[in-house]
């Protein structure tokens, strides 16, 4: 087979796959911007549906952002020291904990949510507050933070750097903030972006845990698909994409930072 033909076939196949995945998204975005989806583009473009979504669901968007930020703070405060602890520990239990950390990712979100409801569901105040959902999000996203930080810590030869810092008189606290944290900053950044993205997009756990007053963006999205015009749901998708795509781009960028150095 000639080089040229092979290249053309590969390119064609790649484009086909891309189209297959991108067309539905593009259609959805279009639907959110057209006057009437069933009449198509000739009915005219409009931002009416977007503003309607904003009027109806802006509080779900704010709640999602609030949740994501709170989730980020908690996973960073827990995740970075946890990853550090796992790195330092030579104990066999450390390996077991590393595996266990993946559990909330592997177990279906519905099951995690059910477990939370079983244990904490009877505490009324707590059950009705957004903090209840936050617990679910932290459980789900923490492994991603720990993993991202842990892998960067591994390649950064932190134990050696710490020995050097301690020989220069640095106390454990000074070493943690002066050497450990700066040298795994790229991992923390990658983990943070992952956590925010996952938290904003999380549906399974949130759907089980939410109340009519604590709806997040994805839950609102499901709600709008079920009960509103198709155009409204699509406009909602558009808003969601506008929030999530920049985050995904940043994850890629952070991934480059964590790549091989030195």
């Amino acid at each position: 087979m000639s080089q040229r033909l092979r290249f053309s076939l590969q390119l064609g196949f790649t484009l086909l796959v891309c189209l297959f995945m991108i067309v539905p998204i593009a259609m959805s975005v279009m639907a959110g911007l057209t006057e009437n989806y069933f009449q198509g583009l000739q009915s005219g473009l409009t931002l009416r549906w977007v503003s309607e979504v904003w009027a109806l669901y802006s509080d779900t968007i704010w709640l999602s952002i609030k949740l994501a930020m709170a989730c980020l703070v908690i996973t960073t405060l827990i995740g970075v020291p946890a990853a550090y602890g796992l790195l330092r520990s030579r104990h066999r239990i450390a390996h077991a904990i590393e595996e266990l950390l993946l559990l909330p990712v592997a177990v279906p979100g519905l099951a995690t949510a059910l477990a939370l409801l079983l244990v904490y569901g009877s505490y009324r105040e707590f059950r009705a507050s957004w903090l209840f959902i936050l617990i679910g999000h932290v459980l789900f996203t923490l492994p991603f933070m720990v993993r991202a930080v842990h892998s960067v810590m591994h390649t950064a030869r932190l134990p050696l750097l710490e020995e050097a810092a301690s020989s220069l008189g640095a106390s454990p606290w000074q070493r943690f903030f002066g050497v450990v944290v700066p040298n795994c900053a790229s991992g923390i950044l990658a983990g943070a972006l992952m956590v925010v993205t996952l938290s904003i997009g999380e549906f399974n756990i949130t759907w089980m845990l939410h109340t009519p007053l604590t709806k997040t963006l994805p839950v609102g999205l499901a709600d709008s698909y079920a009960s509103m015009r198709l155009e409204v749901g699509s406009a909602y998708t558009l808003v969601f994409l506008l929030m999530i795509v920049p985050l995904l781009v940043m994850i890629q960028w952070a991934g480059k930072l964590t790549g091989p150095r030195r």
């Binding site: 950064a156 050696l160 020995e163 050097a164 020989s167």
Partner: peptide, 10 residues
């Protein structure tokens, strides 16, 4: 202390 692998802070 001077280490084999330099141990400089990158």
């Amino acid at each position: 202390m001077v280490f084999q692998n330099y141990a400089l802070f990158p």
